Computed example of a mutant assay.
Amino acid sequence: MEIEISSCEHLMYVSEIQQEMYDSAQRRGTGIAKRSIEYLSKKISEGNAVVATENGEWVGFCYIETWSHGKFVANSGLIVSPKFRNGGVATQIKHRVFQLSREKYPEAKVFGLTTGLAVMKINSDLGYKPVIYSELTQDEEFWSGCKNCVNYEILMKKERKNCLCTAMLFVPENITKNEAVNDQPKDKYDEISQTGLGYSAQNSPGEFHLAINKNKKNSDEKEGHLSV
């Protein structure tokens, strides 16, 4: 299987992709309805999409949209051909289109609206966090795209503050801040930490960690993990 940035060579698949996007939304009973052939063709020909293929067949697809003058980017229309589902293809495509978004728009916030638990998990692994709708783009054109969704009435009744979709957001500056914190030098030989651990300046770092482990009581410690 090949996962490539789209080009005019992939326009041959646009009709199948468009139809499967519509059919999938109908089966779920949620989500954005049919995108036009013209719209998807433009995304493909401009290199603003990722297309997976195998032996001449289309396998999966996802495209990029920009909003608020490039301040926000959305990875939209993620779809996998029924024949190739349940094999991890969606995860590979999502990772590649996310990478493409970061390459093209490194300063932009990347967001998504979805009802799919699998997509939420992928987003979470990429560094997205669940947010309220007010943290997303307020571009009217973006929200007008929800008009074809079966849940549009719910969205408007709630004054566009929430709906059945979960909003998730990746903020580049948060990654930079975390890296800066992690890069701060740490004092291995902090006197307070040494007290009560039987640590001396002659211990090696490995012996120091061993001393800590020996002084720990057996406990069942598990790290919490966000999975939405």
Rank of each mutant, 00 (worst) to 15 (best):
L136K: 01
V110S: 03
N203Q: 15
C163Q: 01
E103S: 06
K188V: 12
S193C: 11
G127Y: 02
K129V: 15
T176E: 08
C163W: 01
I132Y: 10
A180T: 08
P106Y: 00
C149N: 03
V131G: 01
N123H: 09
K177E: 13
T166Q: 08
F111R: 03
M168E: 11
I154E: 08
C146L: 14
N203K: 05
D190L: 09
C163H: 01
N151D: 13
V181A: 07
T137G: 06
M120W: 03
P130V: 09
D183R: 11
F111E: 03
V110K: 00
E135M: 10
E179H: 06
Y133G: 05
P106T: 02
N182H: 07
Y189G: 11
S200R: 05
K121T: 09
A201Y: 06
N178T: 08
V110H: 00
S193M: 15
Q184A: 15
K161D: 07
N148Y: 02
A108P: 11
K104P: 09
F142E: 04
V97A: 04
N174K: 14
K94Y: 05
M120S: 12
M156H: 07
N123R: 02
I122P: 00
A180S: 13
L126C: 03
Q184G: 08
K161F: 08
V150H: 00
A201S: 12
L136R: 01
K94G: 08
Y152N: 06
L169R: 01
E103H: 02
S200K: 04
F142N: 05
V119R: 00
C165T: 06
T166M: 12
R160A: 11
A180Q: 06
I122W: 01
L136P: 10
Q194P: 07
Q202R: 14
K186I: 15
L113F: 05
